[in-house]
Simulated scan of single mutants.
Amino acid sequence: MLSHKEKVAKAKKARRNFKIVVVAMDSDATDERDALMAEIAAADSDKRAGMASGVAARASLAKLDAAEVESLVTVKIYRSDPSFWARLSAQVGYSTESTLKAAIMVDARILEGTDELVQTTDEWEEFFSTLAPSSYSLLTQASYMLNETEPTERIERLKKVLESTGDSAPS
């Protein structure tokens, strides 16, 4: 068995856990996409008359999708330092959403190729304002998983392993 000091030293060497999240910034193509989808649906319902328009609409939709790929942004979210997480949570009045948002602003990076870009608070606020709610939720869910769910699940899993060996408490 490792001593407490050896466990601390080993934990300090461990890779800092992170999650990669791909989100989409808002686009002004929604109306155009809806119109093309309606045109495709109409063409599909009238096979003979709509064949040419359906092909043209599908081609336009493919071009639109290719252009919208530019709206994707990759974010690397790191697990927060536990003492920072606790202080942050207390600072924001134990609001989960506020804690997650603030943790992302400190512990996440925008990825551009292999570069990890640090953002200022204002840059994060501006970025968040460009996201659809579902994209913002992907970011907060990843932070919650890293800082709450996964560590708790790990402790419970390891306690079960310990119990299966007949031990009741770790050394």
Score class of each variant (00 low, 15 high):
residue 76 K to Y: 01
residue 85 W to G: 02
residue 75 V to H: 04
residue 158 L to T: 09
residue 147 N to G: 10
residue 129 S to P: 01
residue 134 S to M: 10
residue 112 E to H: 10
residue 129 S to V: 06
residue 101 K to N: 11
residue 97 E to M: 00
residue 151 P to S: 09
residue 123 E to Y: 06
residue 96 T to C: 05
residue 149 T to C: 03
residue 136 Y to W: 12
residue 123 E to R: 10
residue 100 L to D: 01
residue 82 P to Q: 02
residue 67 A to Y: 06
residue 110 I to C: 08
residue 147 N to H: 08
residue 142 A to I: 04
residue 119 Q to L: 15
residue 100 L to M: 14
residue 102 A to V: 00
residue 142 A to M: 08
residue 79 R to H: 08
residue 143 S to G: 01
residue 79 R to I: 07
residue 157 R to Y: 13
residue 135 S to E: 02
residue 156 E to M: 08
residue 134 S to P: 03
residue 102 A to D: 05
residue 153 E to S: 11
residue 98 S to K: 15
residue 123 E to I: 02
residue 144 Y to H: 14
residue 162 L to W: 00
residue 95 S to L: 05
residue 117 L to T: 11
residue 75 V to R: 07
residue 153 E to G: 10
residue 140 T to P: 07
residue 80 S to V: 00
residue 90 A to G: 05
residue 133 P to G: 12
residue 75 V to N: 00
residue 126 E to P: 05
residue 111 L to V: 11
residue 78 Y to H: 13
residue 96 T to F: 04
residue 128 F to G: 00
residue 123 E to V: 07
residue 101 K to Y: 08
residue 125 E to W: 01
residue 113 G to Q: 05
residue 84 F to Y: 15
residue 151 P to A: 07
residue 143 S to Q: 14
residue 141 Q to L: 13
residue 81 D to M: 05
residue 112 E to C: 06
residue 69 V to D: 15
residue 118 V to R: 15
residue 147 N to M: 04
residue 163 E to N: 12
residue 99 T to I: 05
residue 133 P to D: 14
residue 68 E to K: 08
residue 111 L to W: 09
residue 71 S to W: 02
residue 149 T to H: 10
residue 120 T to C: 01
residue 156 E to R: 12
residue 111 L to C: 13
residue 103 A to P: 05
residue 80 S to Y: 00
residue 137 S to Y: 11
residue 137 S to H: 11
residue 85 W to F: 14
residue 67 A to L: 04
residue 157 R to H: 14
residue 142 A to T: 05
residue 156 E to H: 04
residue 97 E to R: 10
residue 82 P to R: 04
residue 79 R to Y: 01
residue 124 W to E: 03
residue 121 T to V: 14
residue 114 T to S: 15
residue 84 F to G: 00
residue 116 E to G: 03
residue 156 E to V: 10
residue 125 E to H: 12
residue 157 R to V: 11
residue 98 S to Q: 12
residue 162 L to R: 14
residue 99 T to R: 08
residue 115 D to Y: 09
residue 158 L to K: 13
residue 104 I to E: 03
residue 102 A to L: 07
residue 107 D to S: 11
residue 132 A to H: 13
residue 158 L to Q: 15
residue 69 V to E: 15
residue 83 S to I: 08
residue 138 L to E: 10
residue 119 Q to C: 15
residue 106 V to G: 03
residue 118 V to E: 15
residue 107 D to T: 06
residue 73 V to Q: 13
residue 106 V to Y: 06
residue 130 T to H: 09
residue 126 E to S: 15
residue 123 E to D: 14
residue 86 A to N: 06
residue 137 S to L: 13
residue 78 Y to K: 06
residue 149 T to P: 03
residue 146 L to K: 02
residue 152 T to C: 02
residue 71 S to I: 06
residue 108 A to S: 11
residue 127 F to A: 09
residue 146 L to F: 03
residue 97 E to F: 01
residue 108 A to L: 00
residue 79 R to M: 09
residue 133 P to E: 10
